[in-house]
């Protein structure tokens, strides 16, 4: 399956969320947008959260180091981390070419909708990016 970036939701802090529902439970697959990866410039390290960790929308989910800066990644949703993309920290160069498929970082089982109403649709997010570039 190939993710369509225009169908994803985005946090103002540049994380994308692909939200699916399974047996009445929402799951969010989360990554970092192509715009952010370009701005971060040469990622060298990434920290992933532990599976089982509970996060609130806006909490730190992990960290990345690009040349000369450490930047936190934030969770766009509230819930429990149920899966992490363990290969990603060793293959960060692939984020540049495939941020929306290979570049997924974590999956979160959504516990409630708090913060979801602040997520941006693709067009709104693109507007934010063009204003901050």
């Amino acid at each position: 399956m190939t993710r369509d970036e225009t169908k994803l939701l985005y946090a103002s802090t540049h994380e994308w969320a692909d939200i699916e529902e399974l047996d009445g439970v929402k799951y969010a697959t989360i990554g970092v947008s192509a715009f952010a990866i370009e701005q971060l410039n040469d990622l060298v390290y990434m920290d992933l959260p532990e599976v089982g960790r509970e996060v609130e929308s806006g909490d730190e989910l992990g960290e990345v180091e690009s040349v000369k800066a450490v930047s936190p990644l934030y969770s766009p949703v509230s819930g429990e981390v149920v899966e992490t993309h363990g290969e990603l920290p060793d293959e960060l160069e692939k984020l540049n070419s495939d941020p929306y498929n290979f570049g997924w970082i974590v999956k979160v089982k959504v516990s409630n909708d708090s913060g979801m109403d602040t997520l941006l649709k693709y067009e709104e997010y693109k507007k934010q990016c063009s204003e901050s570039a």
Binding site: S12, T13, H14, A36, Q39, L40, A69, S71, Q128, S132
Partner: peptide
């Protein structure tokens, strides 16, 4: 500003 990302 929120939304700024990466090294300054």
């Amino acid at each position: 500003a929120i939304g700024r990302i990466g090294p300054s």
